[in-house]
Design a protein around this nucleic acid. Structure first.
Length: 888
RNA sequence: GGGCGUAUAGCUCAGAUGGUUGGAGCGCUGCGCUCACAUCGCAGAGGUCUCUGGUUCAAGUCCAGAUACGCCCACCA
């Protein structure tokens, strides 16, 4: 037998991944006799490369999937990627720019061709990285949100919603990214605070007579928008401006007459109480414009440079124009003052450019009707959030939901299934439906006028408009095909069991999937939503490429192995809290993998050395130390199982770790290594096998490798892969508790002996031990003498009726060490500390027992336990004091 | 402006339904290359559980308030 003393993950992982993929172990099918367990992956962007967030998200899913698969569920993990409209287009545009080209130079068709080429070349990178991570998806199913069949679903959904009146075209103020040159939804405009100024600008009052102020002063953070002002507003209740009501002011620079309107939205407290109103460039002002029938003047181009409406500032960038306007106002002495001010501005979530609110004809989904059901299922806990607090966040958003802008002025994505009749459609009349034909296929002619002159809408749909269909569109609903068993698969696997995701896309994706599921499948898309934290660096800063603080999971895999990465992440991910990680975080995993490896190595080497073969794992006979171990194994099995059932993966990980290292390795293997009989070997292998099964969801590679090693070297029957092996079950342990308890007491005593030896400065020196105990206990000491000596570094053990001296006094026995002269300084210090601690607890307990209120109010069980504790503590204390007195 | 979260050892974090003497990993100190593993073993130091009040026989755990940090939402010109 030749097993390396160090675990080499690289070799092992490569080999095993091949086995898994070629062996089709992750494939799922409809099985009437099995319960389904299904997860759809949050599809990563095709532009994506595996980052720590992916690693965390997908490891969690994989743990759950592997666990359920081993439990015998028919398990489907549906993989796939998202076309990620803006993100991908940006990437390919950048690529094009290297050749000095813009997408307009190549034209739409050619540009799309390049996009598809790009996706064919790089789009599967993330998939192979997920495979490397060990993700046990049914890879043959890998979907893409722009697959032909998937696109059919998208169109179908659009048409259905339109026909139901839930999709409409409207000319409204939307979030416009001047860099990407497209509309965005509200969710895609991330609000961030920036340091700006609040400028106080004087607007001359028309017909100034000297009876009132010559100017009204308005406060603004965006002076450049004044060019589009068509009113100023005051609060109707604001008596300071009674004189201004019904009056007019003059917009400086433009010399435009502005109405004075009155509306409740104006905050009397803020600024001067007078607000400039720019209906075309501010959402609040837009509403005012509608309400009071104001003029809408658009002063900007698509790229946020000023247009001809901006007069002398035309063609300037918006921020350039701001400076120029301020300069001019300064010259005219129209700036009263400026104050530093923090402004919350929307930023494009793709390119971080500041959003420009803008009036534009776009397509929207009416959300309120969709939200109603989605609110109900969460209120009624038919969908549960883990941790639960996200329920509130979700509901709060849903209660206040706004219509969703779904059209994007980019090329990469699902083209809107919308055609315009050039005869009937009048663009300026954007609110009406005349001339708009919504249809999955290109219509032959306009149903209204019969014209054949039809043009498809140039826009594409928001990426999320396809992702929100993911849980059922991946089964090609509603057309299905043979490769999804004509819908049988959807019926079987839907609703999915759990959705695992980061909180960032709760609104983007999770909420919308619930709405889509209920609308189209008439059923929730998943039962549980597990929301995990964000991965941050060790200073608590979110990892991002632009900040340069990322820890690359692929590098960690390369350095420490995939299992180390996964194990360390799972150990750290708890209760949806954020994870703070550094390179060192992953050492725990590496060390543990090596420990597992070496425990296996030891067992197999010993068996070879002793010529032990095993052909089955029926446990025939075992003694007290075996029983003790099996009992611990049972606790681990039920602990890990219960934790995984409750999505407490970190607990499960910890329990398995603790058992493997600190129970199995530190104690059992040490106990049996000197007397490694066939019986011990069998127990060892049995426990090892069960332990690696417990670890398999978190550490799939090493557990598989060991599973295979055991199969190769023993003659036991086992599944082809641990992937499909049966999850461990707790087995009843035969054996009397007294024996097991005695073993526990011996182990405890061994720790005491080590402790005392250290205190006495004996260190690793082997000394002899004298023990005084009864015949009954003596037999255990004799039977287990070999490992007791080994673990407490003793020369020999003698049994005596009377000890010359006592260095340890326990409930069951007293001990002395065979050393003439004792350096008792440290020993006495430790002893004192122990006595002190015990004394503290003792007086606390006795205080409680002397407290009538406690005796009257606490439950009988608690009082009973407290009494027992008191007795035990008293005895312990007495022994320690006696021990101490003997040394005086 | 609303809402949420976190505060426990030097660091990163565990500590369901209040009741053993508050734990782990890393780091630190001391001793050991004991033939599975130095990616190891053994022993140890280190905590007024952020603060203040309250409920209770009993609070790290529940309640209220304060402080600090973080996050989310919002028509804060």
């Amino acid at each position: 037998m030749d097993i390396a003393p160090r675990y080499n993950p690289k070799e092992v992982e490569e080999k095993i991944l091949k086995k898994w993929l070629s062996g089709n172990f992750f494939a799922a099918k409809v099985s009437a006799d099995k319960k389904p367990f299904s997860i759809v992956i949050p599809p990563p962007n095709i532009t994506g490369i595996l980052h720590m967030g992916h690693a965390l998200n997908n490891t969690i899913q994989d743990v759950l999937v592997r666990f359920k698969r081993m439990q015998g569920y028919e398990t489907l993990w549906m993989p796939g990627t998202d076309h990620a409209g803006i993100a991908t287009q940006n990437v390919v545009e950048k690529d094009l720019a290297k050749q000095g080209l813009k997408k307009e130079d190549t034209g739409r068709e050619e540009f799309l061709k390049r996009l598809w080429e790009w996706r064919d070349k790089y789009g599967s990178t993330i998939i192979s990285q997920l495979q490397k991570l060990g993700a046990s998806c049914d890879w043959k199913r890998t979907r893409f949100t722009m697959d032909e069949a998937y696109s059919e679903t998208v169109k179908e959904v659009f048409v259905r919603l339109y026909e139901k009146g839930l999709i409409y075209r409207g000319k409204r103020i939307i979030n416009w990214c001047p860099r990407c040159q497209t509309a965005l939804s509200d969710e895609e405009a991330a609000h961030k605070e920036i340091n700006g100024w609040l400028y106080y600008i004087k607007y001359p009052v028309k017909g100034y007579t000297g009876e009132h102020a010559e100017y009204v002063v308005v406060a603004t953070t965006r002076p450049e928008t004044m060019l589009g002002d068509t009113a100023v507003a005051i609060n109707p209740k604001d008596e300071r401006f009674n004189w201004l009501r019904g009056g007019k002011v003059i917009l400086p620079i433009m010399d435009r007459e502005l109405r004075v309107i009155e509306d409740e939205v104006v905050d009397v407290e803020f600024g001067t109480g007078v607000v400039k109103v720019t209906p075309s460039h501010d959402p609040v002002d837009f509403n005012l414009g509608k309400k009071y029938n104001l003029e809408f003047i658009n002063i900007m181009n698509d790229d946020a440079t000023m247009n001809e409406q901006a007069g002398e500032f035309a063609n300037m960038d918006r921020f350039e124009a701001r400076e120029a306007i301020l300069e001019l106002l300064e010259e005219k002495k129209l700036i009263e003052k400026k104050e530093p001010y923090k402004v919350s501005a929307g930023h494009c979530y793709r390119c971080h450019t500041i959003i420009e609110p803008r009036i534009s004809p776009q397509w929207f989904v009416r959300m309120k009707p969709l939200a109603d059901g989605a609110i109900k299922v969460v209120e009624e806990d038919r969908i549960k959030f883990y941790p639960e607090r996200w329920k509130k966040v979700y509901l709060n958003w849903m209660y206040n939901i706004q219509d969703w802008c779904i059209s994007r002025q980019i090329w990469w994505g699902h083209r809107l299934p919308v055609w315009y009749c050039k005869e009937c459609f009048k663009n300026e009349d954007a609110e009406a439906n005349a001339g708009i034909i919504v249809s999955k296929q290109k219509p032959e002619k306009c149903p209204h006028c019969g014209s054949h002159d039809l043009a498809q809408d140039e826009d594409v749909l928001d990426t999320w408009f396809s992702s929100w269909l993911w849980p059922f569109a991946t089964f090609y609903w509603p057309n299905f095909r043979k490769d999804t068993s004509d819908g049988k698969e959807l019926n079987y696997f839907y609703p999915t069991s759990v959705l695992v995701t980061a909180s960032e896309i709760l609104f983007f994706w999770v909420a919308r999937m619930i709405m889509a599921g209920l609308e189209f499948k008439k059923e929730i898309p998943f039962r549980d939503v597990m929301i995990h934290g964000t991965v941050r660096d060790d200073r608590g800063i979110k990892m991002s490429k632009s900040l340069g603080n990322i820890i690359d999971p692929l590098e960690i895999i390369d350095k420490f192995g995939t299992d180390s990465l996964r194990f360390s992440l799972m150990l750290n991910a708890s209760g949806g809290a954020d994870l703070y990680i550094s390179d060192d975080t992953f050492l725990v995993g590496r060390n543990f993998a090596n420990k597992i490896w070496n425990a296996t190595r030891f067992i197999l080497l010993k068996m070879t050395e002793k010529n032990i073969t095993i052909d089955n794992l029926e446990l025939e006979k075992y003694d007290e130390i075996d029983a003790w171990l099996l009992n611990e194994l049972n606790n681990a099995i039920s602990g890990v199982t219960a934790s995984l059932d409750n999505y407490r993966i970190n607990d499960a990980t910890k329990i398995a770790y603790e058992f493997f290292w600190h129970v199995f390795c530190d104690w059992y293997i040490e106990m049996v290594k000197d007397d490694f009989t066939r019986g011990r070997a069998k127990i060892s292998v049995y426990v090892l096998l069960n332990a690696i099964k417990l670890l398999h969801p978190v550490m799939p590679y090493i557990s598989e490798e060991i599973f295979q090693l055991l199969k190769e070297n023993l003659f036991i029957k086992a599944e082809e892969s641990i992937v499909v092996a049966r999850w461990p079950k707790a087995k009843k342990v035969e054996g009397d508790t007294k024996s097991v308890n005695t073993i526990t007491a011996i182990a405890q005593t061994i720790k005491e002996i080590r402790n005392i030896k250290t205190d006495l400065g004996l260190g690793q020196k082997k000394v002899s031990l004298a023990i005084k105990t009864n015949k009954d206990n003596e037999q255990y000491w004799k039977k287990h003498e070999v490992w007791i000596k080994r673990l407490s570094l003793l020369e020999d053990i003698s049994f005596q009726g009377k000890l010359k001296r006592t260095v340890f006094k326990g409930e069951l026995w007293e001990l002395d060490l065979g050393v003439e002269e004792l350096d008792i300084k440290n020993f006495l210090v430790s002893l004192d500390r122990k006595i002190n601690n015990l004394q503290n607890v003792h007086s606390k307990v006795s205080g409680r027992l002397n407290n009538e209120n406690f005796l009257n109010n606490a439950s009988g069980e608690v009082v009973e336990a407290e009494k027992n504790k008191f007795t035990e503590l008293s005895e312990q204390l007495k022994r320690l004091k006696e021990l101490k007195n003997a040394f005086k």
